[in-house]
Nucleic acid binder design. Structure first.
Length: 183
DNA sequence: TTTCTGATGTTA
DNA sequence: AACATCAGAAAT
């Protein structure tokens, strides 16, 4: 299947987030091919978004976020887990979509309901930070049926420190999916 | 059921 | 010190 083009990512982050629902994440590695259908995401809409890592400016960690769209921003969290994002909008904005949950499709043998769990289940780690989602080993492709379903909007998870930004409805998930991380 | 705690490395 | 998390235990 053909990966989504870079122009898909070079748009408003909340729009990209919603449209990523139902799309398919593919990790091609020596371990084999692992495939999951995206069912939950969050938008981090730029350096002015106090919940976003990019609100601290360009640092070694956020370098990829401030780069061009269509690349993977992978970071380690709480010392144990990894989280994966797709960089969006244009270079210099620091925007990205966090992928929070997928529905197992191929080659997945553990839980995928949560950003750390999905990375573990799909073998996503820091080696993929900065990789190209169009040409690299980690790609996003159109779903087989092209359909997503009704979308639910909620506040983002785990960003209570961000004041008013924590209340913005920038988390999106597919209504009725059994693989969403929490209701 | 909800709330808590421990694990553990990176960050600025 | 805090963290875009998770699993298991304790409290209710």
């Amino acid at each position: 299947m053909e990966p989504l083009p870079r122009s898909f990512y070079a748009r408003d982050t909340a729009v990209v987030a919603r449209e990523l629902l139902g799309k398919v994440l593919v990790h091609d590695s020596a371990e084999g091919i692992r495939v999951g259908r995206i069912v939950e995401v969050e938008a981090y809409i730029g350096a002015h978004d106090r919940a976003s890592h990019s609100s601290r400016g360009v640092t070694p960690r956020t370098r990829i976020m401030f780069g061009p769209p269509g690349f993977a921003y992978v970071y380690r969290i709480y010392g144990i887990h990894h989280c994966v994002n797709a960089v969006t909008e244009s270079e210099g904005n620091g925007c990205a979509v966090l992928i929070r949950a997928v529905e197992p499709v191929v080659g997945i043998v553990s839980k995928t309901s949560g950003p750390g769990l999905l990375c573990s289940a799909m073998g996503i780690d820091l080696k993929l930070n900065g990789s190209d989602l169009i040409t690299g080993p980690l790609r996003v492709v159109e779903s087989a049926d092209g359909k997503a379903g009704r979308i639910v909007r909620r506040p983002r998870i785990g960003v209570d420190y961000a004041g008013a930004w924590a209340r913005r409805l920038l988390r999106f998930y597919l209504a009725g999916s059994a693989h969403v991380s929490r209701r």
